[in-house]
Each structure stands twice: as C-alpha cells, then as structure tokens.
C-alpha cells in the first residue's frame, strides 16, 4: 500500500514536471535567456555562501558585496522579465527596449555601490 502510494507520488511529480516542461518550452527565447541569467546569478551567490560557511566571514564586506551583487542583479533581471513578458497586461504599453534601458541603468548604479563597498 505504502509502496504503491509512494510510487504514485513519484509518478505525480513526474507528470507535473513533464507538464511544466512542455508549458515552458512555449516561453519566448528572450525570457528563457533572462531565466538562464537569473539562474547563473543565483548559483554564483550560492557558491559564495558555501565558501563563506567553509572558511569564515573574515573580509565580511567583500562577501556581502559579492553576494549582494549576484542577488541584486538577479532581482533586477526578474524585474526585467516581468516588464518584458507579453502575458503581463499591466506593462503592455511599455517597450521592451525601455525596460532594458532601465535594467542597464540600475545595474550601473548597483555595481558602483558594490565596487565602493568591496574594499
């Protein structure tokens, strides 16, 4: 009984995953690129956190700026994705180029602060 239920759960999960993949393949390439970029930023942040957990937080400002740089740029990328996505009726009037300009500007400001904080 238990075995059957567990296998059914696994099958359910598998089915869910499959439906997610098929749905995601319909997503435009532009958004996929942004998703990839977010994944890259978050995993870099994670590696730094692991490193910090291993060796200690001595140059704490350097650690913070490294992680915040990744998280910050990821958040900005999420914002970009929301604005660029055509499904979002809220930002219908907003040109994707304008959204990209915002993204670039915010990154410039963010990284100026990060560099200042890096030490």
């Amino acid at each position: 009984m238990g075995k059957a239920s567990s296998s059914s759960t696994a099958q359910d999960a598998l089915a869910l995953f499959d439906s997610f993949r098929s749905a995601y393949s319909a997503t435009p390439t532009t958004l996929k690129i942004i998703d990839l970029y977010i994944g890259f930023a978050v995993s870099t942040a994670l590696i730094q956190v692991v490193y910090m957990a291993l060796v200690g937080s001595f140059p704490f400002n350097s650690f913070l700026s490294g992680v915040l740089s990744c998280v910050g740029t990821a958040v900005l990328a999420v914002c970009l994705r929301i604005q660029v996505n055509k499904e979002n009726k809220e930002f219908k009037d907003l040109a994707p180029e304008r959204a990209f300009a915002d993204f670039v500007l915010c990154n410039v400001v963010l990284h100026l602060v990060i560099m200042n904080f890096l030490g």
């Binding site: 390439t29 990839l36 890259f40 870099t44 590696i47 490193y51």
Partner: peptide, 18 residues
C-alpha cells in the same frame, strides 16, 4: 567554482540557439 555558472550560462545560451 564561481566561474562554473558563467560557463553554464554560456552553454545554456548556445542550447537556446541565441
């Protein structure tokens, strides 16, 4: 290790056919 995600990012871009 930190460079790995970057490489992953580039590979991903290639697979997407950018």
């Amino acid at each position: 290790l930190v460079l790995l995600p970057l490489i992953g990012f580039f590979i991903g871009l290639l697979r997407l056919g950018v």
